[in-house]
Amino acid sequence: MSDELARKLSNDLKAELNREVASVRMEMEQIRDLVQDAIVRLTDSFGGMRDQSNRQLALVTTLTSSMEGNSDQEEAQEGEDAVKRINIRSFVSETDQILRTFVDHIILVSRQSMEMVHRVDELATQMNEVSSLLKDINAIAELTNVLSLNARIVAARAGSSGAAFSVVAGEVRKLSKNSHEFSDKIGAVVGSAKTNIHAAKNIIEVMASKDMSFAIESKGRVDEMMEEVSDIDRYTSETIAQVSGIADELNQSVGNAVMSLQFEDMVSQLSASMERKFAVIEQFAEVIGIDQLTDESQPMAERVEKLQESLNMQIQSFDEVDRQAVQQSSMDEGDIELF
């Protein structure tokens, strides 16, 4: 009767041990699944982070290369809309070029105007020469007039024989008068030509005389703008360098994180090892039965010795499983694969 009770108790003990081991094993499996699931998601999410950071860096780099000088523009010319990007530096240098052209043009106009003024001055001198020539003509006319007067007097003294000569003298006098009138008319034309020349000179003066301070001021402003653009460029490239530095660090961190997530292998290994240990523990229940101790058909010393033997075997097989686990985990520690 007591034998039967002992066997039942022994079976109950085994059953309870198995139940508890099964419960722990289930939770262990849950942990393993949770961890593996989390690792997969974290790995995905870190990979996404790295891609996003790379895209961000690429975007910032394109944005700034569009603002920089010609070397980048040449590269950009392969894409169609890349050519039309805003380029502040070339805009400013274009403005500078336009200003230069404008200044050159003004100076050219002034140069031509000054040459024209020299010609007009020569024209004025020539007009003065015409005026003095007219005086000579008038002097001749005056002389002719006097001559005709003398001729008339001589003709009058000659009486009837001089009548015809008197007519000629009258014609000569008329001629002198006409030539005087004629030279007066020329004089009037020359006078109005001089007035026109004066007016022309005034117009040329306006054309030639431009205050140059506008050019200086505009040039100063363009130079300032150039300076500012250089400042912006400098600042931009500094910022880009920082952004790219941060992206590198981010990549590094993500790499570290992903690398750390490779403990998944260890989790699997550990859970496999735990699995094996559970098997050993389950075996424990088989090997060490309470009924063996209570079996009175055997001598006590023999029962204890047998039990001791079983315990030794149990210890041995558990230690063996444990050693395998230790070996594996220590080997893997130095053998983490890099992505």
Binding site: R111, S113, M114, D211
Partner: peptide
């Protein structure tokens, strides 16, 4: 000096 002076120097 103004632009006409520059013109004179060029001439």
């Amino acid at each position: 000096i103004d632009s006409s002076a520059l013109g004179m120097l060029l001439l």
